[in-house]
Design a protein around this nucleic acid. Structure first.
Ligand code: FES
Ligand code: FES
Lengths: 141, 141
DNA sequence: CCTTAATTGGACTAATTTAGTCTTATTATA
DNA sequence: TATAATAAGACTAAATTAGTCCAATTAAGG
């Protein structure tokens, strides 16, 4: 039970940006050195986050990336979901073909609910919450 | 974000046993055919569950496996944990060496708590709950 | 305009993990 | 003693993940 490394790094990178001035662009090189996330991998991660609208990127000299929205308006779920290709805790929740065990299986309902519960937490937590939660512990609403 | 196939199958197998008479032993061959879980794989799964005390196994003619305890006393967590070797949602929660980002990272606390929340659900749900939950939806306590 | 500093997109590769199999030994019963 | 079962653990194949590389594009500065 683990997140992909991309999602893990993705959060770290977004958190990095969120803790800095929003008035400038950060080059991948700079972020990579600061966070120790491999640059080429980080590039791929940002490409994904750009597509899903969390990050803005700028080509060319003086280019780089920045948050597309305020940290208060970005949820953890928005960062994680596009980077976690394989969703679904168990096979039955991932595949379309129906399971040979479905007739007497009571498991998938439970996994579905548990998973929903998990994503509800990610949905209701913003990046801002994390930053503030770090200073004085947790306060969500 | 997914469970290993072993954990997934493990639940299905325990659920299979729980829905049947506790008065007999079930051979791997029988369970494998009924659930469509590959027999040799299922064998390994049961070996793990035997070690953690959920399943009793009996060698020799007339042997097989059975629940070591009543379904009411087995939690989902007890089935999943021994079959999910790699615990820890993100790298920081898995590795002992400390993370290069830990100084300004607000993420690991969050992941730790989210993960705890997840396991609390697994801990407070018994196999019996699942079976009954299937008939008339959810009632936990 | 030309050079340089940046991202894009996508193909590629290496490493790791996962899922599954096989084989030999042991045990219990008839 | 034959047979029907699990135990233990080495082994293998497939899949996934993590990470790299490269050619193309774009923007800014001189
Ligand atoms: S294991 Fe497939 S429906 Fe439950
Ligand atoms: S990413 Fe390592 S402590 Fe947060």
């Amino acid at each position: 039970m683990k997140l992909t490394q991309g999602a893990d790094y993705g959060m770290a990178a977004v958190l990095y940006l969120s803790q800095r001035s929003e008035d400038r662009r950060y080059s991948l090189d700079e972020i990579s050195r600061a966070t120790e996330i491999p640059e080429e991998f980080l590039r791929k991660i940002f490409q994904t986050l750009v597509k899903s609208g969390i990050i803005n990127s700028f080509k060319g000299r003086g280019g780089g990336v920045s948050l597309a929205r305020s940290a208060r308006d970005i949820t953890v779920a928005e960062v994680i979901k596009p980077l976690e290709e394989e969703m679904g805790l168990v096979r039955c929740l991932r595949e379309k073909e129906n399971c040979p065990r479905s007739s007497e299986c009571m498991a998938s309902n439970f996994w579905r609910k548990t998973q929903q519960n998990f994503f509800e937490i990610l949905n209701s937590t913003t990046i801002k919450d994390l930053i503030e939660g770090g200073k004085q512990n947790a306060r969500k609403g």
